[in-house]
């Protein structure tokens, strides 16, 4: 503001600055042109994949007819949303979706950072690389395979866990029909599977910290915990906030594979495994209604966007340099 006022009162300087800036800009553009060209495919991809379909959102408010096309189809108001929002199940699936996501966000953060710190403490390079890869590995395993791995542990007849329980003298547990166990199973499977992804990013941030800072702190007598508390964690903060904000944006979405495949679509545990995505899938599998599924996606995006705005606002209040925008 002050700067602006200053520039306004001195037009000649403004012009000079402008010219200088312009020259600098042209110079910069020239210098980075190859880089700009390299980003072009990614930008085009973003445009084609994420922005061009956006007018299609209007589908959520249409009674779709292929012969008329999306834009000529008659309007349907909010009727496409009612199957989801007015459903009796809606409070349950919304609760499940949000609560699972909140616990995922918190636990991913805590365990991700914890694991990253442990891994970076490994001195031997080869051992550290191995640990990194091992942590990331579950992330690339298909959820279908994961669902059978889970099954091999908790299956009623042939599961490892049930064999163990039987040998210990207590009776076996029918996990697939007892809903009280599923919040824990799902959270555990999620952590096991997805923790590596955030962990890798935290590790790279920690490794990016200037070693001399830590060394001089150690020389000055700072303990390991003090170094962690005053150097490593502050450096991690921006990454932690960015990753969490990104997951907050998907708070209304759920990992379909985790909630549908891992419980093997078992009906008796559906009260704690049904989320918005699985509900929509079940509801529309036989109906094939594109407008209704578009409405569900629209709803999830709007809620996610609102949450991002809220949390970004909070972040901006607390530490403005770490907010997304």
């Amino acid at each position: 503001m002050q700067q602006g006022a200053f520039v306004k009162n001195a037009p000649c300087i403004k012009k000079g600055v402008y010219m200088k800036n312009r020259k600098k800009m042209i110079h910069n553009v020239k210098r980075f042109l190859p880089l700009y060209i390299m980003t072009l495919p990614a930008l085009l991809y973003l445009l084609i994949n994420n922005y061009m379909p956006m007018p299609g959102l209007v589908l959520a408010f249409k009674r779709f007819n292929a012969q008329k096309g999306i834009y000529q189809s008659p309007w349907a108001g909010f009727s496409n949303f009612s199957f989801l929002i007015q459903s009796r199940e809606f409070p349950i699936i919304l609760r499940n979706t949000i609560l699972y996501n909140v616990s995922f966000i918190i636990l991913d953060l805590i365990f991700g950072v914890f694991l990253a710190i442990l891994i970076t403490e490994i001195r031997k390079l080869k051992a550290r690389k191995l640990a990194q890869s091992l942590v990331l590995f579950p992330f690339v395993v298909s959820i279908i395979i994961v669902s059978y791995m889970v099954r091999s542990f908790i299956d009623h007849e042939s599961g490892l866990l049930n064999h163990l329980l039987l040998n210990l003298g207590s009776g076996s547990i029918q996990f697939y029909s007892k809903s009280q166990y599923w919040p824990f199973i799902l959270i555990f499977v999620h952590l096991w599977k997805s923790i590596g992804y955030g962990c890798i990013i935290y590790i790279s941030t920690i490794l990016g910290i200037d070693r001399s800072l830590l060394e001089s702190a150690a020389l000055d007598g700072a303990s390991w915990f003090q170094r962690l508390r005053y150097i490593t964690l502050p450096f991690l903060k921006p990454t932690m906030i960015t990753l969490s904000l990104l997951s907050v944006g998907r708070i209304c979405n759920s990992d379909f594979g985790l909630f549908y495949q891992v419980p093997q679509n078992s009906g008796l545990v559906m009260d704690v495994t049904n989320t918005i995505d699985t509900f929509v899938y079940r509801a529309l599998l036989t109906q094939n209604n594109v407008a209704m599924s578009a409405a569900a996606g629209f709803f999830q995006s709007v809620v996610g966007f609102t949450f991002i705005l809220i949390f970004n606002g909070i972040t901006r209040k607390i530490s403005s340099e770490n907010s997304l925008f």
Partner: peptide, 24 residues
């Protein structure tokens, strides 16, 4: 009756398989 159909389909997924396979 698309909304009702969506709702009963979800109810079916919860009980039908368990009942018709004799599990319950």
């Amino acid at each position: 009756v698309t909304n009702e159909l969506a709702a009963v389909t979800n109810v079916r997924d919860k009980y039908y398989k368990e009942i018709t396979t004799g599990t319950v």
